[in-house]
């Protein structure tokens, strides 16, 4: 039996109110008027107070990673003699997210915690606070290909939640602060996960890297990509950041060191001392990103970096589809083996 609880709105909001005593609770919500175009909205992450705020019916435009891997993070403040880290919020972090998003956090963990000799200190201290509330996926969305990437089902969560016939249903693996059992009515809850997507992606398993570098499709993508970086910033598994030392304008003897998300598509990503930079052509950047997502990462960590959330496809203003690109590579591989 899958242990679960059933809540009406009032009960779930009591649960949230009490969870918020020890946690910041983040979920995808409707940010009114915050869409790129006028009079449009954006589904993005922010703290919630009530379950009704949570958007279940649409995929969030941005991924949940910003809730524990901040876009801008001050690592420490400094003056001539001294430096000090900013205080860390004592509260835990509860994030409402989808199954694919959890796999993406596991990918971030690989890079940030397992890639070097020591875990990334700043990442780890926020990551350790994170608990997952999975939002059930009934049908997935138009651009999703989680099934192809094997990220459609997970058991790495504290609880699940879906809205059904006026009630919120949660399967609970970890009864956080004993609150689910306190406010919910115990019932069996089997979480719903997507079994099939509209998009089917066949990831090529044995890419010939030399041949792929010469593939003319990168030239085509180079003529289409505008290097805006949206595919990177909406991606739940992109982890790149850059460092910035800021010297305050009023007193340049004081300042702070920040790290800020970076994008392999945006100019400046590969800038080096002496003015060198690599992958000046946008097609080369596309190639670098695609191969990292569906080939290079796996060689190092054993799992594909891409989790098939499809947000890059949703966000690209030039209608470049990452999933179509992967399929094109796969088709060519099949043709070659012929």
């Amino acid at each position: 039996m899958k242990l679960g609880y059933k809540f009406n709105s009032e009960a779930f909001n009591m649960l949230l109110e009490n969870l918020k005593k020890k946690h910041r609770v983040y979920a995808p919500i409707l940010l009114k008027g915050k869409g790129k175009f006028s009079d449009t909205d954006l589904v993005g992450y922010d703290e919630i107070s009530r379950i009704e705020e949570v958007v279940f019916t649409h995929k969030s435009y941005f991924s949940p990673k910003e809730t524990f891997h901040p876009i801008t993070q001050t690592l420490f403040y400094f003056n001539e003699n001294d430096y000090r880290e900013p205080a860390v919020d004592e509260k835990g972090i509860l994030v409402f997210l989808r199954s694919c998003d959890i796999y993406a956090v596991e990918r971030l963990d690989k890079i940030m915690l397992e890639n070097g000799t020591t875990p990334d200190y700043y990442y780890e201290r926020l990551r350790n606070k994170v608990k997952f509330i999975v939002m059930d996926c009934q049908d997935g969305f138009e651009s999703c290909f989680c099934v192809s990437m094997g990220t459609n089902k997970t058991e790495n969560y504290s609880a699940t939640v879906r809205y059904e016939n006026g009630f919120y249903l949660s399967n609970v693996l970890e009864d956080i602060d004993g609150l689910f059992s306190l406010y919910g009515e115990q019932v069996e809850v089997i979480p719903h996960f997507v079994e099939a997507n509209n998009q089917i992606v066949n990831v090529p398993q044995n890419l010939n890297l030399e041949a792929i570098t010469e593939n003319p499709i990168w030239e085509e993508y180079g003529s289409r990509c505008i290097a805006c970086g949206r595919c990177n910033v909406v991606c739940p598994s992109c982890s790149c950041f850059t460092m910035q030392d800021i010297f305050y304008e009023d007193n340049p003897n004081c300042g702070e060191r920040r790290r800020v998300w970076a994008s392999c598509h945006i100019d400046g990503f590969t800038d080096m001392a002496g003015g060198h930079s690599f992958r000046r052509n946008n097609g080369e950047r596309m190639r670098f990103k695609v191969l990292h997502k569906i080939s290079d990462f796996k060689k190092r960590f054993g799992v594909q970096m891409c989790v098939g959330c499809g947000r890059c496809d949703d966000a690209c203003p030039e209608y470049i589809s990452f999933s179509q690109c992967v399929n094109r590579l796969g088709e060519e591989e099949v043709e070659k083996r012929g």
């Binding site: 008027g33 915050k34 790129k36 006028s38 993005g44 876009i71 805006c228 910033v233």
Partner: peptide
Amino acid sequence: CGECVLKCPTAAWTRGGQ
């Protein structure tokens, strides 16, 4: 003109009043 909002990849720029 709102061009900054249109170009911003992270929604650091968003739309205020009309």
